[in-house]
């Protein structure tokens, strides 16, 4: 039983990464991000409409990310916690299966077991890319931790921990994820605007886990009828990320390879 956990495993933070020494390159990228962000913001403000306001805030966000980047060091860490109204055992069992993980992680389309480590294939707006990762530690019904292989294009470490919530409220699920995004501040800004920022993906992934565990499905409106959207409607549709596909319909068709327990 998860109630037997005496010391919360959260103290063991797997997500913290090491800074590397590519500061000069990063500074150049940040300059690009700041300039493009300011440009987009000015263009947006000059439009004097809701669409313009959206563009302006998008530009503002790129600037913000660029600035935050300057002070944030090289590693970004996100920690998200949700309480799921299910037992740790049920959640752990669910997470053991790759077909379930494919339903959780936005844009993850396939998983291959390639000898040492795993290859995670991501699709999405910016084309298909591969991330190499490997499990580093796990304890049944308590936590799992993983990190990127040295040759992975996307450097990251992550851990997911399960703890019994007080008052029979289920299980507190905490996901810590540290990463370094290729493209620096600009990459981060653009991915944020298009809803493919790692922080959003981590948050939404955990939310999907909660929804699947509690309701058996992922809430969606993708595919419902609408009236004429027009240009403004289409831009907003994209900002509000309505086109997120309903729970792995496209994915299950690809027959993901199942990695053994």
């Amino acid at each position: 039983m998860s109630s037997s956990i005496e010391k919360p495993v959260a103290q063991k933070n797997y997500a913290v990464g090491e800074p590397n020494g590519r500061c000069r390159m990063r500074r150049a990228r940040k300059a690009v991000s700041l300039i493009s962000g300011v440009g987009l913001a000015i263009f947006g403000i000059s439009r004097r409409s809701w669409t313009g306001a959206a563009l302006a805030s998008a530009g503002g966000y790129i600037v913000y990310r660029g600035i935050k980047d300057r002070t944030n060091g090289i590693t970004n860490i996100i920690e998200v916690s949700y309480t799921i109204n299910r037992s740790a055992e049920e959640i752990y069992r669910f997470l053991r299966h790759w077909e379930n993980i494919l339903r959780l992680v936005p844009n993850l389309v396939n998983v291959h077991d390639r000898g040492p480590g795993l290859a995670l294939i991501f699709g999405g707006r910016f084309g298909e890319f591969e991330i190499r990762t490997q499990p580093i530690d796990q304890r049944e019904n308590q936590f799992v931790a993983w990190e990127s292989m040295a040759d992975s294009a996307f450097q990251h470490r992550g851990s997911l921990e399960l703890r019994e919530a007080p008052g029979k409220r289920g299980t507190e699920v905490t996901l810590a994820f540290g990463y370094q995004l290729p493209g620096g501040g600009l990459g981060r800004g653009l991915t944020a605007v298009f809803g493919e920022h790692p922080e959003q993906q981590v948050r939404e992934g955990l939310r999907r886990l909660k929804q699947l565990m509690e309701t058996g499905e992922i809430a969606t409106t993708a595919g419902q009828p609408t009236g004429r959207r027009g240009i403004k409607g289409r831009i907003l549709e994209s900002l509000y990320r309505e086109k997120m596909p309903p729970q792995g319909v496209e994915r299950s068709a690809r027959q993901p390879m199942i990695v053994g327990d």
Binding site: G223, T226, G227
Partner: peptide, 20 residues
């Protein structure tokens, strides 16, 4: 369709998107 603008439109039939 915007402030003070509601219109009758022809839209696609809604379909089942989730099991429930």
């Amino acid at each position: 369709q915007g402030k003070n603008n509601v219109q009758v439109e022809t839209v696609n039939d809604p379909g089942i998107l989730n099991p429930r």
